[in-house]
Amino acid sequence: MNAPVVSSRINMPGAGNASSGNALELRGITKMFGALAAISDVTLSVKPGERRAVLGSNGAGKTTLFNCITGDFLPTAGLVRFFGEDVTVFPPHERIRRGLRRTYQISSLFTGLSVMDNVYLACCGVSRNRFSLVRPRPDDALVHAAEILVAAVHLTDDKDRLVGELAYGQQRQLEVALALSGAPRFVLFDEPAAGLSPTERADLVTILTSLPAHIGFIIIEHDMDVALRVADSVTMMHNGRIFKEGRSDEIESDPEVQELYLGGGHAQH
């Protein structure tokens, strides 16, 4: 697969000043909803190019953690560093322009637009073309970038169809394409395999494992088969706290994890 990466016309401030050497660093992140702590005191660091799976039962705080990283929610306490830069209070779009991307657990697409338009918008969002009043020409660099991305997720044959008409699996693939627009440095995948057929899962694993090596990601995934095949390391979450961290093979064979997640009554899938 071609690397679905376009480097032209991208703002990338803060590149290369990774003082801590981590792509993503969370320190003591706590998010309260009223009196309820959705996540408490989460400290986590991921190196550039590292692929991390976050496991945990429903309600463990995984998606809340993502929302704190992307800025959809501001954490009640704690610090978020992205490639060494403190982005804790940055609005979402500022983080995205620095190379952070995410997908949504429930597809969040523009259903009234065509596949191509969806991906084209995603490419515009991280370019200086955002406010352009001039329609793109067919040989426009961003249109070309969008075409490459559409091909990367095997949607070329459907590129002119409305997203609302696509099959569920195709919409999930489009979610992934939107997150790979521009020049991503770090991606948060929120259950990208949920609801996919076994063939589509295999496809997804191929897409994830063949991402360029410098792109790190965190993946929330209930399907252990997918999670352990694409990730080098695993963070287990339980009741809003980090419960265990380690290499994928260690976690897989850890008796406590077996009890809590794989074999125990908490397993969801």
Binding site: Y104, L121, R130, V134
Partner: peptide, 20 residues
């Protein structure tokens, strides 16, 4: 791009922010 993005903002502002 501006008009398309405006329609995107109308339909799904949160996703638009997540696209930069």
């Amino acid at each position: 791009p501006f008009g398309l993005a405006l329609q995107g903002v109308r339909d799904n502002p949160r996703r638009m922010a997540a696209l930069g």
